[in-house]
Nucleic acid binder design. Structure first.
Lengths: 127, 127
DNA sequence: CTAGGTGCAAATAGTTTGCAACTAC
DNA sequence: GTAGTTGCAAACTATTTGCACCTAG
C-alpha cells in the first residue's frame, strides 16, 4: 500500500460518495501531482480488493464509496438532482423475494432508485 | 415527425432495450446515412415528449426503451452481465413505503438492481 | 537488477455543439 | 423566406493504454 493508494482510499472514505474526479481533487489537495490516471487505477485495484465499491447514480458518473462504510440505498431525485440515503433494510423484503423467486442476489449497497422527491412533485428534470 | 425520427422510435420499440449506438446501427440498416448525432438528438426529443425513457444499466451506456412498452425492473448480473426483466409489481411494496415514509415517488420503470444471478454465485465480475 | 507503481501523453468511447445545407410550409 | 431538421466535423468529457522513469527490495 503506497502513499497515493492510501490517499485515494482515505479520500473515498472521507468523501462518502465520490466520482473519480472528486477523489482526484481531494487527493490533489493533500498531494498535488497525483495523476488522475493513478486515481482510476487505484480505484480499480481497491475495488478488486473489496475495499471500495461503486454505484451508478444518475448519468454515467460512477460514485465510489468505501466498502466498510454503511451500505445504503440511494434515492436520486430527477427533479432537483438531490440524493437521499436510506438504510438498506428497506430492500430486505424485495431482496429475499428476488432470491427466492429468481435466484438473484441483489447487491443491496449498490442500489439507486430514481424518481421524484417530495419537493419536486413534477416538472422538468434533467436526469 | 420526420422520417429519421420515426425510424429512431421504431428502432427503440423494436429493440426493447438499446444504447444510442445500437439504435444508430438499427436505424442505419434501414436508412443508411442517418447520423449518430441525429439519433442522440432524436432520443432526447422523444424523451421530452415522453415517448421513450432511458435507464442506466451497469456502466455508462444508457439504454433507451419505449415508454408505452411494458415497464419493468432490470436485474443486472455482475457475474455474467446478463439482464433479466421482471414485472414492476415487485417494487410496489417498496414504492409505497418510500412514498409514505419519504415522500419519494420511485420511477418504477427505471430501476436497475445489481447483483448475482443464480448461475453466477460468485467469482469475478466486471460490472 | 527486477518488479511494481507512477506520471505523462496519446488513444478511445461516448456525447454534444457549431454551422451550413435542405425541406416544408 | 422562415423555421425546424439534418449531416458533418470538431469539441468535449470521461476513461484507458503505452511507455519511460523511478524506487524498493
Amino acid at each position: 500500500m503506497t502513499a497515493p493508494r492510501q490517499l485515494v482510499l482515505d479520500a473515498v472514505r472521507a468523501l462518502g460518495h465520490a466520482t473519480p474526479e472528486q477523489v482526484h481533487v481531494a487527493v490533489g489537495r493533500i498531494a498535488p501531482g497525483v495523476n488522475i490516471t493513478t486515481v482510476y487505477r487505484t480505484l480499480e485495484l481497491l475495488e478488486e480488493l473489496g475495499l471500495v465499491t461503486h454505484t451508478h447514480l444518475s448519468h454515467g458518473a460512477p460514485t465510489y464509496h468505501a466498502a466498510d462504510d454503511d451500505q445504503h440505498v440511494h434515492l436520486v431525485c430527477r427533479g432537483c438532482g438531490g440524493i437521499q440515503e436510506l438504510p438498506p433494510e428497506l430492500l430486505q423484503p424485495l431482496a429475499s423475494a428476488l432470491r427466492r423467486q429468481h435466484g438473484f442476489l441483489v447487491d443491496i449497497g449498490h442500489v439507486a432508485l430514481f424518481g421524484r422527491c417530495g419537493g419536486c412533485g413534477s416538472g422538468e428534470g434533467d436526469e
